[in-house]
Design a protein around this nucleic acid. Sequence first.
DNA 1: ATGGCCACCGAGGGTGGA
Length: 256
Amino acid sequence: MKIVTWNVNSVNVRLPNILKYLEEFQPDILCLQELKCLEEKYPIENFNDVGYKSIQSCQKTYNGVSIISKSQPTDVQYNPVCIDKEEKRSIAATYNDVRVINFYVVNGQAVDSDKYKHKLKWLKKSESYIKEQLAKYPKLIVLGDFNIVPNESDAYEFSPDSILCSAKERKALQSILNLGLKDCFSPNDDESPYTWWDYRGGAFHRDIGFRIDLLLASKDLNSQIIKYEVHKETRHKSWCTTQPKTSDHAPVMIEC
DNA sequence: ATGGCCACCGAGGGTGGA
């Protein structure tokens, strides 16, 4: 089974890229973040037309998460981790015997800002939710855009006092891992571990990036993982000729 | 070079992303 997480930065702008991705990589489960559209603008027919189902939690302009899959989801939860009900940042469902929880974690903007406090609060809520879910579903994966750099080696330049890298954020992530999850990341000797590169300053071609898109699996699932890949090629404007504008994130895939 | 922000809303620039 192939499971992917991808922050697409607008599902409608990126639709050609997503359809090409489905065709080329044939994931069983594709979790998207930053849909940036209302439910009625979500391109579900385009996914149905190529044999995929979708569940989604949408809002105007910001956020939004969905799970695109070959098989039918069960036990669907829309926005299970929620502080402000307008913010759609979480969605969960079961596919066969695997529980999939898709998160778009709060960015946080700057350390000690109101948004940073909101981020930490949101992470605390997600920890309680994951704990409850782990008790129900032994084969579980939490994945998405975490907006947290797990380790110093996961950033081109690790700044411990800045957003994505701060101690409080990383501690919140560690608390989630301590529930019994393992980061599926597997280093590749030929390339950096990054999954996000700023649009500005030619960051991608200079490989100034960060690893902030994560897949965290329970032990029962983690033991079955046979592959971990970051599909950086989708970040090249030449990859999808019908929509050369790319997301600033690359899709991350595991196979189990 | 695989480059030099992008997408949103709304009607022009302000906001948010990370």
